[in-house]
Nucleic acid binder design. Structure first.
Lengths: 236, 236
DNA sequence: AAGTGGTCTAGACCACGCG
DNA sequence: GCGTGGTCTAGACCACTTT
């Protein structure tokens, strides 16, 4: 049996207060000694809790002044792999232009396919994602039909393909390779994203590897970055 | 004046022994109590040193067993331009347009600065990187002069700023946040990269966090992606 | 049982920021 | 001068792994 660690109690308590605005952004937390008194503990334990919050990006520490609550990052989370938790206040909508259906592999895919993939039909679907009712992202997605049946988009858990894989099929995203380009928008992209042909668009090619070796997901993504940038973070 | 912190001495000592193979990969470090004895200190201090090495990916800890030296540092998923980081025959060249010098913080930087950074002067340097004698990348780089002296670019290990930090200063990159945009090239970018004004260019804003909490590196990078894409991979 | 790392106590002194 | 966070000491007990 693992006894509840005191530093985790403190850490969770403070995190909750930050998330609910009881410690507002930009203000200072109570001093370490005050927290010690509140939880009847010593500074070692309090500092352990604060160090974790520091690592997680909730606070910054200022020597001689205190621990200040930081603003949480908003994110599109496009380039992120499992493990990244995005915090966004934006209104998001997804429109499926093409339901998952069996199709041929497309030359549009930037990554070389394995021989097993080439010799099997693929499942293709296409979506446009909106932020505040404006189209931002056009996605083309492919995966090998050998590895997974065509899913129906209305069965997507929370509208997310990855969540569906994880919860309904126990398949996890294990990693990704990406290629990024700034390109002039072609006619199709411009139409779907409400841009002019030739406007700069961010083109992201991705191969996602999953916990099933035979299942890769290929995406060709076009992103309008004039309103919001695409964000991406990695931390040890 | 800052006295040399004992946990940093221990941390650097062990890191050097790992880097030089004196603590071989896969073996266990001396136990915490042994290190305590060796440095005449207490476990709190030793554990602080080991926790840093853990965060930096040099070791893993196994409860009840010991601290084991890891094979290689975990992947960071940093964005790299195809060709610059690969072992290929591409001819790479870096031209320093502006040697590291003390300057003011620039509004160009996309990320909010910490209060400590705002109140200190910064070091700025600018480079253009070439592939096969064609300019591909224009880089603006900043870091707080409080955290690190201005380095001379001719002292860079293999022409790499990060390698220099690791080998000469034992500072490791701990993570990054990035913002990506496809933009029309402005006059300055177009001139430096041999493009036309208005051509799409990939604009990458990065904040690198290092193992020294007071040292962040800020880069604003403009990348011509018509010849080669920018690549990025991440694996668990 | 012995050794390891994980958590915690109860102090101490130092460096920094501010009035 | 005082309160803040940063470092450090000298212990203690616990949970986990191995012998």
């Amino acid at each position: 049996m693992i006894k509840r660690r005191k530093y985790l109690q403190i850490q969770d308590y403070i995190k909750k207060r930050i998330q609910t605005g009881k410690y507002p952004v930009g203000t200072y937390l109570p001093s370490e000694n005050e927290i010690c008194a509140q939880f009847s503990t010593t500074r070692t334990t309090v500092r352990k809790a604060l160090d974790e919050l520091l690592k997680e990006g909730f606070i910054e520490k200022e020597h001689g002044k205190g621990s200040r609550v930081l603003e949480r990052r908003k994110s599109l989370g496009l380039l992120t792999v499992k493990g990244f938790s995005e915090v966004t206040d934006y209104k998001v909508k997804t429109v499926v232009l093409q339901e998952p259906k069996i199709a041929d592999w497309d030359d549009l895919i930037s990554f070389p396919l394995t021989s097993a993939e080439k010799n099997a039909p693929c499942v293709y679907f296409q979506r446009v994602r909106y932020l505040e009712d404006r189209p931002i992202v056009l996605e083309h997605n492919w995966y090998s039909q050998n590895a997974l049946e065509p899913l129906r988009s209305k069965d997507f858990v929370d509208g997310s393909f990855f969540k569906t894989l994880s919860q309904d099929y126990l398949i996890e995203i294990m990693g990704s390779e990406q290629e990024l380009r700034a390109e002039p928008a072609n006619k199709e992209v411009a139409k779907n994203l409400g841009m002019k042909t030739g406007d700069p668009v961010l083109h992201i090619s991705v191969r996602f590897k999953t916990s099933r070796p035979e299942l890769n997901l290929y995406s060709e993504i076009y992103c309008k970055t004039t309103m919001v940038p695409v964000r991406n973070s990695y931390f040890l």
